[in-house]
Design a protein around this nucleic acid. Structure first.
Length: 379
RNA sequence: UUGGCUCUAGCUUAACCGGUAAAGCGCUACACUGUGGAUGUAGAGAACAGGGUUCGAGUCCCGGGGUCAAC
């Protein structure tokens, strides 16, 4: 039972992209990697078997805010942790709830101590402090757990971003103090990743990168991007952060993004991604394919009996036709949501796998440029 | 057969006294980035065939359909 390690195997000669292997007590992860989001302990609409066999997911997310509210840490502890509760034997990463408090909760009050907020489920009042969030994530039992941060909205003013960043850093100290003084609960090692903030301001981001790096955590995350700022700004800040974060540790860009976002950011040196887009947009009939973006709800697919995506190796994308999947969406069938989610996740995992191959082959930059044009095509 | 009620967009319903037709759902598109089967935005689409009164009719009259009740 050991701390998470990162074996950096290849650095692309044509870009800053890297290929590596992350090792945890629940197995290893080939990077760059995309991590499906499993908010309440399930990836919406997708079974664990489908995640393993069709999607070929190597690690999934869980959400502290959601799991704390329901079913509650008591149930998770009695179950023996989330891995046993949802029967997922591979690595799990849990988000701290910092983002959810900002995006989901109704009224919230941010103070030095922590955040008081109202549950989006029943309106009940709760207090999240860095210590409390560490305890919750200890109970959930993720292999990777995240620091409790404040995620200021895109376009935040410098003054606010600065104050927010300082608070996030003070909270980070408390997270580490609590994390290091509490034991692993289920016999395997948990790893705490700190999160860079600083909105769209380079000096704040650099300051944050330096502070985060000083924690010497086994991995580092970049938060507060794709929260409303223009895409070029997101790229610029991501690139900047990559330049200032340790090379020998995995870099995790939180909550991003579109397939082309992922390829661009891999080129900057990001190793890990998570995003709700493949599943959420999938449930809303948006398919990401090897040929471009499809809105399967569109009338033009009514009589198209070709497979959802012939270019993808996985079975799901060949098994069903576009016309059939459109029909299922129109009919409001549950199966539509599942097929779209499994397909999109398969595509995302295939995409990062291809990226890895081209990093190792040393032609990532040219492959990426060509690929992005194709993936952005609206079919 | 007689009497009452009723007829407006694909569906369900609005519109002061007669002044030039709105909405929800559905449909056609678009948006969605540490979750949202949600939501938002844009668009297409209508008066019971017909006739009359009137400067002007969804609105009044004749005629037609539906429905309920009595015979």
């Amino acid at each position: 039972m050991a701390r998470l390690s990162f074996d950096l195997q290849h650095t692309d000669i044509s870009s800053n992209a890297r290929a590596g292997v992350i090792t945890t007590d629940h197995g290893s992860i080939q990077t760059p990697i995309f991590m499906p989001v499993g908010t309440v302990g399930s990836v919406k609409g997708v079974t664990q078997q489908q995640l393993v066999n069709d999607v070929q997911a190597q690690i999934i997310l869980g959400n502290s805010y959601q799991l704390y509210l329901r079913p509650g840490t008591d149930v998770l502890e009695k179950a023996g942790g989330l891995h046993r509760f949802n029967h997922w034997d591979k690595p799990i990463l849990t988000d701290s709830g910092g983002y959810q408090v900002f995006s989901l909760a109704g009224t919230r009050k941010i103070k030095e101590e922590g955040v008081t907020f109202q549950s989006h489920i029943d309106g009940s009042k709760h207090l999240f402090t860095p210590e409390r969030v560490m305890d919750i994530q200890r109970s959930i039992g993720g292999d990777i757990i995240m620091a409790f941060d404040e995620c200021p909205p895109g376009g935040s003013e410098y003054g606010y971003a600065h104050k927010s960043l300082e608070l996030t850093h003070r909270w980070l100290d408390r997270c580490f103090e609590q994390f290091l003084s509490t034991p692993d609960k289920y016999g395997y090692t948990q790893n705490l990743f700190p999160i860079v903030q600083g909105a769209t301001y380079k000096d704040l981001r650099k300051q944050s990168c330096d502070y985060i790096a000083s924690k010497e955590a086994p991995g580092n995350a970049i938060g507060g991007l794709s929260v409303g700022e223009p895409e070029p700004v997101m790229y610029e800040i991501c690139d900047w952060c990559c330049q200032h974060l340790p090379k020998e540790k995995p870099r995790y860009l939180m909550g991003v993004g579109t397939p082309w976002n992922i390829l661009e950011c891999i080129g900057m040196g990001i190793d890990m991604f998570d995003c709700v887009m493949p599943t959420r947009n999938g449930r809303n009939a948006m398919l990401f394919t090897t040929q471009g973006v499809i809105n399967i709800d569109n009338k033009k697919w009514e009589y198209d009996f070709s497979p959802v995506d012939e270019g993808l190796p996985g079975e799901v994308s060949h098994y069903y036709s576009k016309a059939y999947l459109r029909h299922l969406f129109k009919a409001g069938e549950l199966l539509a949501l599942t097929i779209a989610s499994v397909h999109n996740l398969s595509f995302y995992l295939w995409l990062v796998g291809e990226a890895r191959k081209h990093i190792i082959a040393g032609d990532y930059a040219s492959w990426k440029t060509e690929m992005i044009v194709r993936l952005k095509t609206r079919l």
